[in-house]
Design a binder for these strands. Structure first.
Length: 467
RNA sequence: GGCCAGGUGGCAGAGUGGUCAUGCAGCGGCCUGCAAAGCCGUCUACGCCGGUUCGAUCCCGACCCUGGCCUCCA
């Protein structure tokens, strides 16, 4: 049975969705003001894996992931670029969708946008207003009154006194309490604005996710996810607003993924140490990227570096090498796979322990390689199983030769084939020194020639960093 | 300052009170014309100091160090 580490309780809990047949999953998506970087990729890939695993485990899943398409950064960026807010967000959403597809991430079942849910947000704020937990400051902004929500801080394990004692909270005199947060921002000149009972303005960030998740999912939501940096204050505020408005529990299991780091630092736009998904995909293939992201547990930090990505590529090559040359089995035999399948599930059931699950895949690879000559049909059985298990990670979806020969390079396949034929002639003539020269020539071009039992030698590309 | 997470072998990265993670790299062997791939074997570990225990990397306590959040953030 699946156990999930729930951020709210900080412990493992058996996963029992409200409706055993349909998991309600909401993940905080991205703010569309710029290209997404590898930090966003981690979130996308991790929750893609979560959804795939839940579905493979027999659950129906309704997966909602939002788009924040109105906020300060967007307005500022649009102004800088001399572009309309709508034009900017439309462009960025298209690019984001391109990134998603390029990463092999299945789209969510619905992708609500903030500007498409202004009415729901206003309505939600009205409910908070009616319950006396919202008020309007002198500047026209509407705030949530934090001390009216007794359990404020429960998600992130903070207490109001501790937060107030913190030195980093700026004092804003229009708030009754420095910890109160904005529900509705009064419009400034030349900003996009929508009408509301409190005047023209736009929604605060936190209210978006409360309104959008409730618009698309029944309460309580089973799993609400996002990056660790959203734990406080974003998710804390979501809980406060949602539960204060509805009077019922908002979310049952909170899942937060760890950061992508560069050296010792978190990868972030503000740090300037980021690499966009687009750029990463010009340097590494998507399965290598996914492997790298899934080779660490989702709650641990993962470090972006050339060495780590090259290592991921090599590891993945071992999986593909095992698959190379395996056909379809004569008849499926699930019993042959049972031991690995159960170890794999046990790993995944343990809070999505993908590194442990990957280790099972490698053990399976060893077994495939061991039996492939003596018992080819069993090897095929196991190979099919390997692919099936890897599907949860979005890995091993390519033809092995395609993967192994891919990765780019300056030389054409035709040239390679021609050289290999030439070398084969020399080998048959016993001119090994000449043949080896060609092998070296190919190797210098990043091509590894492998003589097999067949007459025709196989080849594959080594990534440039291999040497 | 407050709160949270973590420190595992050359690197990456799981896990466990007492045999084995796994991948990459290294070393030896088999295989190969030579290689590659593969198989077999093998070496480098659990931050530091105490405590509990027959036994601790794993439990408890102190200490050191790192990261994150407390401000926009996946």
């Amino acid at each position: 049975m699946l156990q999930i580490f729930n951020t709210r309780t900080r412990r493992m809990e058996p996963f029992e969705p409200t409706d055993p047949k349909a998991v309600r999953l909401y993940v905080c998506g991205v703010t569309v003001y710029d290209d997404c970087h590898l930090g966003h990729a981690r979130m996308l890939v991790i929750f893609d894996m979560v959804v795939r695993y839940l579905r493979q485990s027999g659950y129906g899943v309704r997966y909602i992931r939002n788009l924040t398409d109105i906020d300060d950064k967007i307005i500022r960026r649009a102004a800088e670029l001399g572009e309309t807010v709508e034009g900017l967000t439309r462009r960025m959403i298209d690019r984001f969708h391109g990134d998603q597809e390029a990463l092999g991430v299945a789209p969510p079942d619905a992708e609500p946008s903030a500007t498409g849910h202004i009415g729901a947000m206003v309505h939600l704020i009205e409910r908070l207003w009616d319950r006396g937990v919202a008020y309007q400051g002198e500047n026209g902004d509407v705030y949530f009154r934090v001390d009216r929500f007794p359990t404020y801080g429960c998600l992130s394990g903070r207490r109001l006194e501790e937060l107030r004692a913190g030195s980093r909270i700026g004092i804003e005199e229009t708030k009754a309490d420095p910890l109160d947060f904005v529900l509705w921002k009064a419009a400034k000149p030349n900003e996009p604005a929508w009408p509301s009972p409190w005047g023209h303005g736009r929604p605060g960030w936190h209210i978006e996710c409360s309104a959008m998740s409730m618009a698309h999912l029944d309460l309580p939501i089973d799993i609400h996810g996002g990056g660790q940096d959203l734990e406080f204050p974003h998710h804390e505020n979501e809980v406060a607003q949602s539960e204060a408005a509805t009077g019922e529990p908002f979310v049952r299991y909170w899942i937060h993924n760890g950061f992508v780091q560069v050296g010792q630092d978190k990868m972030a736009k503000s740090q300037g140490n980021f690499m966009t998904i687009r750029e990463a995909l010009t340097r590494y293939d998507r399965e290598t990227l996914r492997f790298w992201l899934l080779a660490s547990h989702y709650r641990s930090p993962v470090t972006f570096s050339e060495e780590n990505l090259v290592q991921a590529r090599f590891s993945l090559e071992r999986l593909y090498l095992a698959l190379r040359g395996l056909g379809e089995p004569d008849s499926p035999d699930s019993a042959a796979l049972a031991p690995w399948q159960s170890r794999f599930s046990a790993a995944m059931d343990d809070d999505f322990n993908t590194p442990d699950a990957l280790a099972v895949l490698f053990d399976l690879v060893r077994e495939i390689n061991r039996v492939r000559t003596a018992d080819p049909d069993r090897a095929c059985q196991l190979g099919t199983g390997l692919r099936e298990m890897a599907r949860v990670f979005g890995l091993l979806e390519l033809d092995p030769e395609t993967f192994l020969r891919g990765g780019g390079g300056e030389v054409t396949d035709e040239w390679i084939e021609e050289r290999i034929h030439e070398r084969q002639r020399l080998r048959e003539a016993g001119q090994y020194a000449e043949a080896d020269r060609i092998r070296q020539q190919l190797l210098d071009a990043g091509i590894l020639v492998e003589d097999g039992p067949e007459k025709q030698a196989r080849w594959r590309r080594r990534s440039p960093a291999a040497s």
